[in-house]
């Protein structure tokens, strides 16, 4: 109970830094989820619907990347954005943008893998039916997206869940800079290292509350758009 009370005090008290951390967390999570799903879902749908040479290899590669360790993704982005790296001139390291890039690298394979699995489970049956009716490829795609809309929407939840809970890459490329790139997860690690376990747990509770609120709102939106499952 003490932890919950502390969490609420932190959330609604006078500590402006926490609200700033929450803001950065949400900004990073939302941006990276939207970018990743905008890339990953169309790609996944394409892979799921079509039969082509090399599809199995691509899927194997995607499934491997779905388990990409965040620190490895962070390291990759770190090398890309560091001063001596190919994109060093843009001076993006230790910025929210760098964190978003790392998150996109992590979430996009998940969006691709999940979307292709969702679509490929239904695609053969739908394809056969659609071809039997002589439907155009455009209409086939349209109806496939319609039929899989709920499951594809859930890819957004999964992506957001990964983004908001990730710590390794955010720490590496964000640097956990106070008032700039500190997010909930890196703040938790910091407080734990400092020995402030109570505060760390309180921050963890707040993180869970945020995830719960965002997911609930998104679920209501999904039900409003597509009806209850």
């Amino acid at each position: 109970m003490e932890v919950i009370r502390e969490a609420f005090l932190l959330l609604f008290g006078e500590n402006g830094e926490l609200r700033q951390i929450i803001g950065v967390t949400l900004q990073m999570s939302f941006t990276s989820t939207i970018i990743s799903t905008c890339i990953g879902i169309p790609l996944g749908v394409f892979i799921g619907m079509r039969q082509f040479r090399g599809k199995r290899l691509i899927l194997r590669f995607t499934h491997t990347l779905m388990g990409l360790p965040p620190v490895v993704a962070g390291l990759l982005v770190f090398f890309l954005l560091s001063r001596s790296g190919p994109l060093g001139q843009y001076r993006l390291l230790y910025s929210v943008t760098a964190m978003v890039v790392a998150q996109v690298l992590l979430i996009t394979p998940i969006a691709v893998g999940l979307s292709s699995s969702i679509v490929s489970a239904q695609a053969p049956l739908m394809r056969e039916t659609a071809l039997g009716m002589g439907l155009s490829k455009g209409r086939q795609l349209l109806y496939t997206l319609y039929e899989c809309r709920r499951q594809l929407f859930s890819v957004l939840f999964t992506g957001f869940g990964r983004a908001i809970s990730e710590v390794g890459a955010a720490q590496l490329v964000g640097g956990n800079v106070q008032y700039k790139t500190r997010v909930m997860t890196t703040a938790i690690v910091l407080e734990t290292n400092k020995g402030n376990f109570g505060l760390a747990v309180a921050l963890g509770v707040i993180l869970l509350i945020i995830a719960f609120v965002v997911t609930s709102v998104a679920q209501r939106l999904q039900e409003g758009l597509y009806g209850k499952a």
């Binding site: 239904q122 049956l125 739908m126 039916t129 071809l131 039997g132 002589g134 209409r139 319609y146 039929e147």
Partner: peptide, 22 residues
């Protein structure tokens, strides 16, 4: 060529629309 597969897919919308899409 019209082809009716063994397990035809029934889309989630109404029966009437399912037929109209043809």
């Amino acid at each position: 060529v019209g082809y009716l597969p063994q397990k035809p897919y029934a889309y989630g919308f109404s029966v009437l629309k399912n037929v109209c899409i043809a």
